[in-house]
């Protein structure tokens, strides 16, 4: 199970990083969201995986580690605030700069055919 879990964390990280490296702000926001899933799962796993062992007293014989859970809980909420902030910044940047590229300007090697195929779908 641990191997599968680690694979999923790694895959989410890779997907998140790849999207975060894209040029358009919305892709970056999506990438950051994926990355924060990965980070949360990673942090949570530092308390080790346990089945049927909720960190509530009197519920089971052994408890999962409550500390990473508390950390991740706040991280999820803060992660939402961060995503919201990034998204609003992206909107604001588009409003002020006229494009949604993270560099503020669209780089000068336009690929007209690709632009058309992206738009027609």
């Amino acid at each position: 199970m641990e191997g599968l879990y680690a694979f999923c964390v790694g895959l989410l990280t890779a997907c998140g990083i790849f999207l975060a490296l894209r040029g358009r702000s919305f892709s970056v926001v999506i990438g950051l969201t994926l990355l924060s899933y990965a980070v949360n799962l990673f942090l949570f796993a530092s308390g080790r995986l346990k089945l049927n062992a909720a960190a509530v007293l009197g519920q089971s014989e052994q408890y999962s580690d409550p500390l990473p859970q508390a950390l991740v809980l706040t991280a999820i909420v803060i992660g939402f605030a961060m995503t919201a902030f990034a998204v609003i910044l992206a909107m604001r940047a588009r409003a002020d700069l006229g494009n949604d590229h993270v560099d503020g300007t669209i780089p000068t090697q336009p690929n007209p055919t690709a632009r058309k195929s992206g738009g027609s779908q």
Binding site: G23, V29, T83, A90, M91, N111, A114, G118, G119
Partner: peptide, 17 residues
Amino acid sequence: LLILALFFLPQTTPKES
């Protein structure tokens, strides 16, 4: 949140990489 934001952002990303 993201759907609302998408209303103001382009619906698609151009292929430029």
